[in-house]
Design a protein around this nucleic acid. Structure first.
Lengths: 193, 193
DNA sequence: GTCATTTCTTAACTTAAGTGAACGAATTAT
DNA sequence: ATAATTCGTTCACTTAAGTTAAGAAATGAC
């Protein structure tokens, strides 16, 4: 499990054995059962997650309806908005599958940055990369129709199609479950003809 | 002009006079004429922008059609995707108004980070904040209808409604200009009745 | 294993966005 | 100043998504 984390970090900076041990001593690995809610609307959590195995989902409840806006899977980082602005969360985060992840918080970050400033570099680069990726995703979403978004998802994250319930995929695509069903039927029809 | 930049920076870190002078010696301020294209599709620019005054627009040309996906105005930072991944740009960036901005590049960043490591902290925090804000924006977009998005924009960025042409706003909202016209007429009608 | 709940699909109907075209208004070029 | 282009709106028509409802399939609880 540690290897996955250290392999990931090694893409950005190189760690000494001492630094690795310092990280391990923080006892950050957690195994979470499917269905567990990590963050509820209104809560003020400080937890930042890095997923080693599994899948977690971010969703709002608007007018009593769940609106799923993101999925996070292997090697992805999730820092909830409430950690950044120290305000109550507007959304929920729950585990779609049994999940192994690491949990950190800004206090730990500062401690690590002070001991080894190169972590600050890593976090800056990661944040910049994630921002750039997020912007491309948003652009693709804006410039395409629900059908194109679905086809794009099939290309880019085929695993999600398998591991995530349709109605959650639908709101992730910005449409209703019935529309996703219909749209899939339409695509099947085209493929045949 | 410098004051705007240093005021902005002071929200994150405090600078010595030496550091301020080091920045000024880099000669980063530019005045750009309305209509100037800062980045073209296919180009590999290294320029990162911070806007002091004015407005710039990011757009794709897809099937010969302009698709505007973002506007950047006063005190906003734009690091094009091509700077991050060093690949040809997929989009254009142009000035909607006469604009004053600063231009930097990763080489300058590294130089500044080496001299004054606290800039690395600033950039990490800024990137994290922008990422969090971007995620909230994306969530709002996904969970609302074109009409709600428009009303939301009127609330949150009323200046854009004034300074940006309707057809560019339309694609920013993910719809066609005709639909934006109709949608506005519909809202006017509701307000009356 | 059975029952209850959730999930997925289909269908009929409503609502809103896309499309193509037209026309006046505003802007830009010369 | 005038001509040419671009921009914004409206309209009629098409297409696709939202809504409501119903039923089958899958999943989870006991």
């Amino acid at each position: 499990m540690q290897d996955i984390l250290f392999n990931f970090i090694s893409k950005y900076i190189s760690l000494t054995e001492d630094e690795k041990n310092a990280i391990l001593s923080l006892d950050i690995f957690r195994t979470i059962k499917k269905g567990t809610i990590l963050l509820k609307e209104g809560q003020k959590s400080q937890d930042e997650y890095f997923i080693l195995k599994g899948c977690i989902r971010k969703y709002y409840i608007i007018d009593g309806e769940e609106k799923t806006t993101a999925f996070f899977t292997e090697l992805e980082v999730l820092t909830p908005h409430c950690v950044i602005n120290n305000a109550p969360s507007e959304y929920f985060i729950s585990c779609l599958e049994d999940t192994i992840l690491t949990v950190a918080n800004p206090g730990m970050d500062v401690e690590i940055f002070t001991k080894s400033p190169k972590f600050e570099l890593m976090c800056r680069i990661m944040a910049e990369e994630m921002l750039a990726k997020q912007q491309i995703n948003f652009d693709e979403f804006k410039t395409s129709s629900p059908e194109q978004r679905y086809l794009n998802l099939v290309q880019k994250r085929p695993d999600l199609i398998q591991r995530v319930p349709q109605h959650q995929l639908a709101s992730f695509l910005g449409i209703k479950p019935q529309s996703l069903s219909r749209l899939r039927a339409r695509i099947m029809e085209k493929d045949k003809g």
